[in-house]
Design a protein around this nucleic acid. Structure first.
Length: 1040
RNA sequence: GGGGAAGUGGCGGAACUGGCAGACGCGCAUGACUUAGGAUCAUGUGGAGCGAUCCGUAUGGGUUCGAGUCCCAUCUUCCCCA
């Protein structure tokens, strides 16, 4: 019996050995194909999380596999080291962000090394190093130079009590209060820096050059939110004209009011003096809400009238101008023309505030409704006439509900007129809009008609006296509600000269063409009142952060020269170390005189520095380039390295970055390309003989998203608590943990609570009793805990409470510490388990028992390799079977690595272990064949479990290192089965299985199948109608 | 409300272009070795039935010789957007 597998002993030794030998150094070698594998860099939060292992170790396995397949692989690692948590630590615990960050990095670097990943540590980049952020600043200057960076006022969340700007995650709760002091936050306008990401909207929509998950592409496409429409200019009575963007220029005739965002610059000018107080109050209120609060459907729409009016340019209607917070300043032009008949939000708003709603687009289904009362409003015989005309209706008492098709309306109107009692009216709504009075039919087609009709109806029917519009009156009837509003692309109605214009048609290649939109847009251009336009939801990237721990924006403000870029030779603008972290201020940089005060690079006069720092997404937008040469000081990266390694071939990371990081880094690369930053790299690449077409258009050619490891669910302890009830709460003097709740008797003289512990908050337990009630059990220092196996000093901390499957977090107590796992099971086992237990792109809840499976596998492999076989009773058939299995495994493992289905690759390796185990027990192969199988097993395991593979490889006497050996070549001939199980089906149901040679002919297979006992039994003497043979599957289906 | 992903044993999950459902592992059960077992080894393990056999991939339809896989409808869960 060989010695035991002891990962704790061998793993550190190999780590050191590989480090010493520079095994993972990646060096430019134009003679070999390159592979740049990249996994998203971590934030140095302090401790490596199991999630980091889950993200990194499968990526590492794949990179290792690529290396064994002959690629020159670069797989770097670094730290996204600027950011808010460091600053919070400074404020809360008095540690300098720099010290906190670099201490964390030291720890995490140590932890990362236990992973056994093939990181090239000489390429480590840390975004908070001056040699790194110098170039982050340099990029800012290049973008500034190329008009891709600009400064503008923008709103930030601001706590008036702390006197500080807040990041999104520092604003808590529905009421949006400051996380530190609870004061409701306000929006504050600050001058901030932006990058023109919108300039790249079209190019960012184009994903054709990258192999990225459909999900990510869809999210980016939605995020960019391209919509086609028109800009239309409305004159106003109070001052400047207002331009609106609309996706529906075909609905212009139905624009009955206009809505500005509360922040719209013309609000002041438009507002009439009598409305001023109310408008201002509303603007302030809106400033406090989030966009989601403001725009979510279902939320009550609010707004106020400004007193101002605009002129609808297509029909010269005078339309009121409102402000409402459902319109966002950041979208389009911050002003909309409201078409309440065909936009859901405008409809709700108009109904609420009594604004006119005029339909201008026909329904596409032709549905028309009407409502009346036979007897009260209609003469007897009305429904009989409807029957005669085959107009469908439902009658309930004397009430008649008519629901007809548009084509029947004329006939209906004639009947209605005939039967209408004097002093009544009846309306048709939906695909046609008209009011039938005893003296004629009035169409509902304009704001004027709205007014006139309403007046007539009120005169006839006092109960509608309080209705402000016809639509409001109709909305009062439940029966009409579903036909009052629609947002389809129907034909135009009530639209002056455009009435009757077709809404859509099917184009030559089958796509839908929006005819009405196009015709109206063309006409607007001719009239000079509008033009076609494309609008994006995407906004420019706001990069200013009112923070200390980030890269300072390299701009100086001079009274004479304005905003002046810091000259490149003065970079980096260093962060000063000696700053105060008072929670009162804004960025501490603002109070650091040495940093703040400088001289103008242009005129030499006194000037002040920009004190905002850059969004950390900027650092991570170009880190893939810095990795190439982290200490290079003549540019952001060494063109020689870039020429060889770029672009990234395979990127992996979490889906949560789909829109932010992954859009920013694409923007960055495109902007770098257009600023000419890749030119030297391009020349170097051409000198290497590379085709540089499209080489710098996209940063990462392929992307794969892994899922997330969630916390392990667990039941709470079952307890018996005795003590005294105080109201609903039990003050426990004794708590005992039990294995089951049945048959527990209450202690005499005490109150007793039994049940499962759901949660614990400090000294209070929340217990669920068997009847489902939840009881609070309070404890104090005198409470005695009786927990099996915990001894006499047991405390409340040792009582386990219920955990659901959810994200791991320290506060929930469901985190899994990789360090502990490594010291218990070894890194190889942890790596293999993470790859084996889940579908990588899906993730799932941690299972602390499941790891035993891979631990047994590694122990077995250890013993198999070291114990070997005697080889005395070699059986050629078994030897062939073994080598077949080996080659089938080569295929399965390779496929798994190729497609990121690591779990199936590991399953195949475990299955090979099972085969070897079986053979070893029976001792039926020669040593030579056994050794060959073992050699392959180790090579196939190397990417997944690099330590044990290396150890056993070397122990078997093979040349160091296993990780630089060529990947085994799959031989389909060896893998092919000699004999297969022919499945015999009758009508698709399996009725027999027979062993046949693999290359069996169709006729032979069919003959054997028909003769098989199973088939005979189930055919019941019937003649087969059809016999189907599927050679690939070894199957015959007999149809009877 | 819109867009996307998913739903398979007690659990994690296999099943390539439609072709033997449940690979591999956890757990569980029985047995062996043991002072002991949360170690190890062996055997078994979707459900029902003594059995031949029948039923089974969220639900209901459909296409097909054949459906976990394709089509339609419904339900549930998750993610993104609103």
């Amino acid at each position: 019996m060989a010695e035991k597998y002891n990962p704790q002993e061998i793993e550190p030794l190999w780590s050191e050995q590989w480090e010493r030998d520079g095994l993972n150094r990646s060096v430019v070698d134009p003679g070999r194909p390159k592979h740049y594998a990249l996994t998203m860099l971590p934030y140095p939060s302090g401790d490596l999380h199991i999630g980091h292992w889950y993200a990194m170790t499968p990526s590492d396995a794949r990179a290792r596999w690529m290396r064994m397949r002959g690629y020159n692989v670069l797989f770097p690692m670094g730290f996204d080291a600027f950011g808010l948590p460091a600053e919070n630590a400074a404020i809360q615990r008095g540690i300098h962000p720099k010290i906190w960050t670099y201490r964390n990095i030291d720890n995490m670097r140590r932890q990362l090394r236990t992973m056994g990943a093939m990181f090239d540590w000489e390429r480590e980049a840390i975004s908070s190093d001056p040699e790194y952020y110098k170039w982050t600043q340099w990029f800012f200057l290049q973008f500034y130079k190329h008009d891709l960076a600009y400064r503008q006022k923008a709103a930030v969340d601001f706590c008036p009590n702390c006197n500080t700007t807040l990041a999104r995650e520092q604003v808590w709760g529905e009421d949006r209060h400051c996380e530190r002091c609870g004061t409701p936050v306000i929006k504050k306008e600050l001058e901030q820096w932006f990058f023109r990401t919108t300039r790249y909207a079209e190019e960012l929509l184009d994903h054709s050059a990258i192999n990225w998950p459909e999900r990510v592409k869809a999210m980016q496409t939605n995020w960019i939110g391209r919509s086609e429409g028109a800009h239309v200019t409305f004159r106003t009575e109070q001052g400047e004209p207002i331009s609106v963007f609309t996706t529906r220029p075909d609905t212009l005739w139905g624009a009955t009011f206009m809505v500005l965002a509360p922040e719209h610059p013309l609000v002041d000018q438009i507002t009439t003096p009598d409305r001023r107080a109310e408008v201002w109050a509303y603007v302030e209120e809106a400033a406090r809400k989030t966009e989601i609060d403001r725009t979510a459907e279902g939320k009550d729409k609010t707004g106020v009238f400004t007193g101002g009016y605009a002129i609808n340019p297509v029909n010269n209607e005078r339309i009121p101008i409102w402000i409402a917070d459902y319109v966002l300043i950041s979208y389009g032009s911050g002003a909309i023309m409201a078409v309440p008949a065909h936009d859901q939000r405008d409809f709700e708003f108009a109904l609420k505030y009594g604004l006119p709603i005029i339909p201008v687009i026909a329904r596409t289904d032709g549905l028309v409704k009407s409502f009346t009362k036979e007897g009260a409003w209609m003469k007897e015989g009305f429904t009989h006439a409807l029957d005669q005309a085959r107009i469908p209706y439902q009658k309930s008492g004397e009430t008649v509900y008519v629901s007809m098709h548009e084509d029947q309306v004329d006939e209906y109107v004639a009947i209605a007129q005939q039967y209408l009692k004097p002093g009544s009216w009846v309306e048709v709504v939906g695909a046609r809009w008209a009011f039938i009075f005893d003296d004629g039919v009035v169409p509902f087609d304009s704001v004027a008609a709205d007014r006139e009709l309403l007046a007539r109806c009120k005169a006839l029917e006092p109960s509608v006296a309080d209705r402000r519009t016809i639509m409001e009156m109709l909305y009062g009837l439940e029966w009409y509600r579903d036909v009052l509003f629609h947002d389809e692309y129907g034909d135009m109605i009530n639209s002056g000269p455009f009435t009757g214009t077709q809404g859509t048609q099917i184009g030559p290649s089958g796509e839908v063409e929006h005819v009405a939109k196009a015709k109206v847009t063309e006409w607007l251009e001719q009239q000079g009142i509008g033009h076609s336009a494309v609008n994006y939801r995407l906004r420019d990237w706001l990069i200013s952060r009112q923070r200390y721990w980030g890269a300072p924006i390299p701009i100086v403000y001079c009274d004479r020269c304005g905003a002046v870029p810091v000259p490149e030779d003065q970079l980096p603008v260093l962060l000063p170390d000696d700053v105060d972290f008072k929670p009162t201020g804004e960025s501490p940089l603002r109070y650091h005189a040495g940093f703040l005060n400088t001289t103008c690079p242009q005129c030499g006069g006194p000037a002040t520095r920009e004190t905002d720092t850059m969004d950390t997404f900027m650092c991570s937008s170009w880190y893939q380039y810095r990795y190439l040469s982290p200490h290079y000081d003549e540019g952001p990266f060494d063109p020689h390295e870039g020429a060889y390694w770029l672009p990234v071939d395979q990127y992996t990371g979490g889906i949560e970055h789909a829109t932010m990081h992954l859009m920013y880094t694409r923007f960055f690369t495109k902007a770098m390309r257009d600023c000419g930053i890749f030119e030297p790299t391009k020349r170097a690449a051409e000198a290497m003989g590379r085709d540089t077409t499209g080489m710098f258009d996209e940063p990462m050619l392929a992307l794969f998203n892994q899922g997330m490891i969630l916390g392990e669910p667990r039941d709470g302890d079952l307890i018996v608590a005795t003590g005294k009830f105080e109201g609903e709460k039990l003050n426990a003097s004794h708590i005992r943990v039990v294995s089951q709740l049945d048959g527990i008797e209450a202690a005499p003289g005490y109150d007793t609570v039994v049940g499962e512990v759901l949660s614990r908050k400090e000294l209070v337990l929340n217990v669920q009793t068997p009847d489902g009630r939840s009881v609070v059990v309070d404890t104090d220092e005198t409470t005695v805990f009786d927990i099996p196996g915990a001894g006499p000093d047991a405390t409340i901390e040792q009582i386990r409470y219920q955990l659901d499957v959810e994200k791991m977090s320290k506060s929930k107590g469901n985190v899994v510490a990789p360090d502990e796992l490594v010291s218990t099971y070894g890194a190889d086992a942890v790596r293999a388990y993470l790859m084996f237990a889940f579908r990588w792109e899906q993730g799932g809840p941690w299972d602390s028992q499941g790891i035993q499976g891979v631990v047994r596998w590694l122990n077995d492999v250890w013993a198999l390799v070291l114990d070997g076989v005697e080889g005395n009773q070699a059986d050629p058939a078994t030897e062939r079977d073994l080598m077949r299995k080996v080659h089938q495994t080569i295929k399965a493992v390779g496929d798994g690595l190729e497609h990121f289905t690591f779990n199936t690759a590991l399953a195949a390796l475990m299955a090979l272990r099972n085969t070897l185990h079986d053979i070893q027990r029976r001792d039926t192969v020669s040593r030579a064949v056994w050794d060959e199988a073992i050699r392959h097993l180790l090579l196939l395991m190397a990417p997944f479990t690099p330590f044990i593979a290396e150890e056993l490889w070397v122990r078997r006497g093979y040349p160091y290192s296993i990780h630089t050996q060529p990947w085994p070549v799959y031989n389909p001939e060896i893998a092919a089965e000699e004999e297969i199980t022919l499945v015999v089906q009758i009508n698709g149901k399996v009725r027999d299985r027979i062993q046949v040679p693999a290359g069996i002919s169709e006729d032979e297979a069919k003959r054997l199948a028909l003769e098989s006992t199973g088939a005979q039994r189930h055919m019941a003497g019937k003649t087969p109608r059809k016999v189907i043979f599927v050679a690939q599957r070894g199957m015959v289906n007999i149809v009877v």
